[in-house]
């Protein structure tokens, strides 16, 4: 029974009696539906609902403080980045779609609880990428294939970032534009592995590249490697580097040629590598 087909009629006194249970979420779905139906049609404002419900924020304050694990922030940020990417892709391919953009196909808590005991972060993100790709393929045609491939590649790069970020002792950096546009995520493993995914960058052409720099406490930029950016504005990068310390600045510059040992252009985007606690 889900309460939709046969909603019980309640009196005002019955609703008042159930008010505490209602605000505490202690009613079953049919009872919730009955209370909601009553509130929607009753002339009485039933202020006891707001009065009792207002205590809940205080209850929330009473819990013992527990910190989440390292890595949760990176997972959330990566999931949001993937979500944003899908929104962007939905807008870009909207003209070829036969239906309205679909809600973000993230599995809910309940779905994930039922599906697995514990899925690794990398697998989880890749699953998201797969779902995103499947949704994208609903509007697939030859003209869109390059866009979809680019989207998938970007999703994979985000998964790579998260894999690195999930390693013990890893650092993450949220890259934000120094000027204009260009943002992304970077993760640096304890073993020096670096993964980066960036978007909204000006496309490269010719020999032009984006160079990733690590700027430590001595202020001297260390080149980590180069990558190019296509017309979609996205760039990805993976490399091995010396182990970096927390507080190291990860920065992107646009350089005329690959292999530069010192930056010649201004910083396009940057972020500070920190423990993802």
């Amino acid at each position: 029974m889900n309460g939709r087909d046969d909603v019980k009629t309640l009196t005002c006194d019955e609703v008042r009696e159930m008010a505490g249970a209602f605000v505490l979420g202690a009613l079953d779905p049919a009872e919730v539906a009955a209370v909601r139906a009553h509130l929607a049609s009753c002339d009485d404002a039933h202020e006891e609902i707001a009065e009792l419900g207002g205590v809940l924020p205080a209850l929330a304050e009473s819990v013992p403080v527990v910190e989440p694990s390292e890595g949760l922030k990176a997972r959330i940020m990566a999931a949001a980045a993937a979500d944003l990417e899908e929104r962007t892709a939905g807008v870009a391919t909207g003209g070829a779609m036969t239906t309205a953009p679909q809600p973000t196909p993230f599995p809910s808590v309940s779905e994930r609880t039922e599906r697995r005991a514990r899925t690794s972060t990398g697998t989880w993100i890749l699953r998201i990428a797969a779902v995103v790709a499947i949704v994208g393929l609903a509007g697939w045609n030859l003209l869109l294939q390059n866009q979809l491939n680019a989207t998938e590649a970007y999703q994979r790069s985000i998964a790579a970032v998260i894999d690195v970020a999930a390693e013990p002792g890893s650092l993450t950096a949220i890259l934000t534009p120094a000027e204009g546009t260009g943002s992304g995520l970077a993760a640096v493993g304890a073993d020096g592995k670096v993964a980066l995914a960036a978007r909204d960058l000006e496309p490269t052409s010719g020999s032009t590249v984006y160079t990733t720099w690590a700027i430590g406490g001595d202020g001297v930029p260390l080149a980590l490697g180069d990558f190019t950016v296509g017309s979609d504005g996205k760039g990805t990068f993976e490399a091995a580097a010396p182990a970096l310390a927390a507080g190291t600045v990860i920065a992107l510059t646009r350089e005329p040629t690959p292999g530069m040992t010192a930056p010649t252009g201004p910083v396009v985007s940057q972020g500070v590598a920190t423990s993802p606690a």
Partner: peptide, 10 residues
Amino acid sequence: PPPAALTEPD
């Protein structure tokens, strides 16, 4: 969604 009372003004 949460019961309305959880997000009602107070």
